[in-house]
Design a protein around this nucleic acid. Structure first.
Lengths: 330, 330
DNA sequence: CTGAAAGCGCTTACAG
DNA sequence: CTGAAAGCGCTTACAG
């Protein structure tokens, strides 16, 4: 119906025989209109193909219905599902997702400039951190912010993650129950809170039981897990178990061990972290620690919705318990 | 620093001692200002922390710098890389990505409503199609649209995909050269152009050489490939080769065959499609047809940029040649 | 409940 | 090159 000229509330008002204000009230949540005008307006709007202009709206309300979602390292199959679940959750809440991708563990000013320009309603930073300097810009603009799957050193922000410390401990205890006598920990990138805490909980238990262990630093990639596992058994000694800081590395570890003829779980055991889909594939059947993704997403979205409704700038560190998923590599 | 009150061009103008128009001209690409005013404005802007309001801007120009990216089925590891590459490409061009996710092969009105509300500058539909009805809404609003990795039946739109027909033929010829005598094709979802065309090219060659083949319908998932492969060898006869319509299914096929003790490539050969990262993993080393992702993205973005600069509504079907990547499953 | 009017923060002819 | 003024499409007090 509309030819070249975009249909405005004014056009609808004219056709419906009401004022532009009334048209606005029909589309603005919380505004009051009589049922009679509502019907007239909706009929006219339908006929003309009217659709409220989000920009004009945002200009006045100074609020948007856009959430900035910043992601890093989408090669890790853990994240695509996080992305789609967030998108679905926000869609249900009436929000859209502006997707920003970065390659750095620490976001830089330019990565987030766009979010400020669009005056997003809220921001989720996944799998990365940022300098206080940059993060404070959000505070100044009263834009709520959640670090997802990362904890910061400071107490000034809100973060949601798996209880990694506890998970590390439980993994250690599980392997000890299996009668394992020495272990290897393959870390993710060492500048991440996730890897550090999984390691801390794990080592804490091993040390208290005086179990020998070796640590190898890696980088959260399949290739990293593969090469690191090869390095770990180069001496000829195969440890009784590997705790690998995420699943994609654990799959690399499994493949490397298999290729070297090491039998799993007979000669050594492997346990990963995340519970990505591939962990359940028949060729791997990887025992792993499942991240409580649904709950993590729930805490993230409800914090954001609360803060969007009434900004408080509340900080906190939410840690959700995961669970051990036992398969065939232990 | 701004306290509570957002800094506007007016504030900057006052501090810089120029008009608001001049401030605007400094930030509006293509507008002319003297170097002298530019410097005064930039200094004042920096001091106040000014940042042009994108919404006010879009309201007037009736253009945005947002690209709507609609994705389906991000479980297929082919897509995360597509997403990040698109995001990087658009970032370099000064555009942001609004991410929309759908579960349906055919998008519904509500999936795209948001894109119209935000008056996006352009739209990419990945791995899905939409009814003409819905698609025409974009035409009416002069929003350029590209179907990525899907071809439509009609000639009314612009699509960019791999040359799937040619790929199917080349795969057949490659397997014939290997001396293969009978084959199985495992299809993806049958309502997708990708699966249909790969199949058509493949069968065309087999028929012309009178090579026997069997087709099994599957669904582009790992589990689908796994179960379908089991079904294909249930009779006890193992075909000389499998052409599987995408890599993730091919990995499932490989695992199923291995589990049944079928030796690859000695007893049968497997070839996939996409060349996802996992195809190169040591435990798979899957021979596959590589999709020319970089080129496909290039054609998509340059079409969109052209149409955004000057809308023509041009349609077309771009098909880019891929290449065979030979590994150890053939 | 409804309408007229002001104003959100910009861009853009139009004069000078 | 620059400024004053109009206007983009909405929301929102303010009267009635």
């Amino acid at each position: 119906m509309d030819m070249n000229h975009t249909v405005t509330a004014k056009d609808v008002a004219k056709l419906a025989g009401v004022s532009q204000s009334s048209v606005s009230r029909v589309y603005f949540e919380g505004a009051k209109v009589s049922e009679k005008t509502r019907l007239k307006v909706l009929a006219a709007a339908k006929q003309l193909g009217y659709r409220p202009n989000e920009f004009a709206r945002s200009l006045i309300t100074n609020r948007t219905r856009i959430i900035g979602l910043v992601m890093k390292g989408v090669d890790n199959p853990f994240y695509p599902q996080v992305l789609t679940r967030f998108t679905a959750a926000f869609k249900a809440l009436g929000f859209s997702v502006l997707f920003v991708h970065t390659n750095n563990e620490e976001l830089e000013a330019e990565d987030i400039e766009i979010l400020l320009n669009y005056n997003v309603a809220g921001v989720i930073i996944t799998d990365a951190t940022m300098s206080l300097n940059v993060a404070n810009e959000f505070k100044e603009n009263k834009i709520p912010l959640v670090f997802f799957n990362r904890k910061l050193q400071t107490d000034d922000f809100y973060s949601v993650s798996c209880n990694n410390l506890d998970a590390g401990r439980k993994v250690a205890m599980y392997l000890l129950e299996k009668g394992v006598t020495d272990m290897v920990y393959i870390s993710g990138n060492e500048d991440t809170s996730t890897s550090r805490e999984r390691q801390r909980g794990f080592f804490e238990v091993l040390e208290s039981r005086q179990i020998p262990y070796t640590k190898y630093a890696s980088n959260y990639t399949y290739e990293g897990g593969y090469q690191t596992a090869l390095k770990a058994i180069r001496s000829g000694h195969v440890p009784a178990a590997f705790f690998v800081a995420n699943d994609i590395m654990a799959l690399g570890t499994v493949d490397a061990l298999k290729q070297q003829g090491v039998k799993i779980p007979e000669e050594t055991k492997v346990i990963g972290f995340d519970d990505i889909e591939m962990a359940d594939w028949p060729s791997y059947q990887l025992t792993t620690w499942r991240q409580p993704v649904e709950k993590m997403i729930h805490f993230t979205t409800s914090y954001l919705m609360d803060e969007i409704a009434a900004y408080t700038g509340k900080s906190g560190k939410v840690e959700v318990d995961g669970a051990l998923i036992e398969r065939l590599t232990t």
